[in-house]
Simulated scan of single mutants.
Amino acid sequence: MDARFLGIPELAEAPSVAVVVDVMRAFTVAAWAFAQGAEKIVLAGSPDEALALKARHPRWLALKDGPPAPGFDAVNSPGLLRSVDLEGRTVVQKTTAGTVGALAVKEASLVLCAGFVVAEATARLLRTRARDGVTFVVTGEDGQADEDLACAQYIALRAGGAVTDATGFLDRAGRSRAAYELEHGVRQGVHPDDIALCLELDRFPFAMVATPEDSLMVLRPHAVPPPADGASL
């Protein structure tokens, strides 16, 4: 499989297939939101847009990264979100990197959002849907975030059929700048379990597909069953 790894500023045009990677923490949080029963996630372009959407839809739950803020119901932390009942709810998510990356490739024919927690399901979906190559959007640090690049490289190898040990990729993510900032209180709105939850390989059996719906970019879970014969990719 032909794979490119680009930061958000390097996206000169919409790719055919895009995998937007934000390990710490946007798309780990998104996966946990679906695991907690969320029906869909609306990806907002700004905090003001997120709050305006919630104002129009009072039952929607808005979350952002950073510390708690007026009008927002939750912060971008998997450790904090995992105890929230989201059954049937719509979540509006705005983050510094992940949602920005997804909106930057909204014209692509297929947009997947990913982290380690949905790596295998994402790779399986790519294997069936990505015939002309994939652009992996490394959202953090203008494309230099090693936790996102490591995850993207791992998914690319798995999608290409390689039998790949994830240990080295997870170790890189665990030593990343983002992990350091989460551990040492540089980032706010953090639960002590956030790093470990972001590094749980294949915690969930679904991929996450973002599509335009009524002028919004909406993320939904997409079940990806294992191969019928039980074989790996």
Rank of each mutant, 00 (worst) to 15 (best):
L201T: 00
G140K: 00
H184S: 12
L197Y: 15
R172N: 07
V84G: 04
L149D: 02
R131S: 14
T167M: 04
L182N: 13
G161F: 08
D171K: 09
T96F: 09
E213M: 15
P78Y: 03
A35C: 11
L199K: 01
M1R: 09
V17P: 06
L61H: 02
M24C: 08
P225F: 14
G79C: 06
D48I: 15
C198W: 03
L112R: 00
L201K: 09
L43R: 04
D229R: 07
K106F: 05
M24N: 01
A179W: 01
W60A: 00
V75K: 01
S176Q: 05
V92D: 01
R59V: 15
A178F: 02
T211F: 14
E10I: 02
P227T: 15
T211V: 07
D146M: 04
V118E: 00
G230C: 13
E87T: 08
P212T: 07
S109Y: 11
E181I: 10
R59W: 06
L170M: 06
T95F: 07
A178D: 01
P221F: 02
L63I: 14
D73K: 10
G45V: 13
T28H: 03
T95P: 05
D2F: 13
T128V: 15
A156F: 06
W60T: 06
P225G: 05
P205C: 07
A162F: 09
E10G: 09
F206V: 08
K54L: 04
E107T: 06
L112C: 04
Y154H: 11
C113A: 07
R25H: 15
G66E: 04
G37W: 11
L80W: 06
S77T: 08
Q144G: 08
D85Q: 08
H184A: 08
A196G: 10
P15G: 11
L110S: 12
L86W: 02
L63H: 02
V163N: 14
P192H: 08
A196H: 05
W32H: 00
R172F: 02
A179K: 00
E141A: 10
L110Q: 06
I41H: 00
A159F: 00
V23S: 10
E120C: 14
A35I: 05
L11C: 05
E120D: 13
G79E: 12
D229A: 05
L125Q: 10
P205T: 12
L112D: 01
E10K: 04
E147D: 13
A207I: 13
T128Y: 15
Q144W: 09
Q188Y: 11
L170A: 04
V186W: 10
L80C: 14
V163F: 11
M208D: 02
A38Q: 14
V29W: 00
F34V: 04
T139G: 05
M208P: 00
I8H: 04
P68D: 12
I195N: 02
T28W: 01
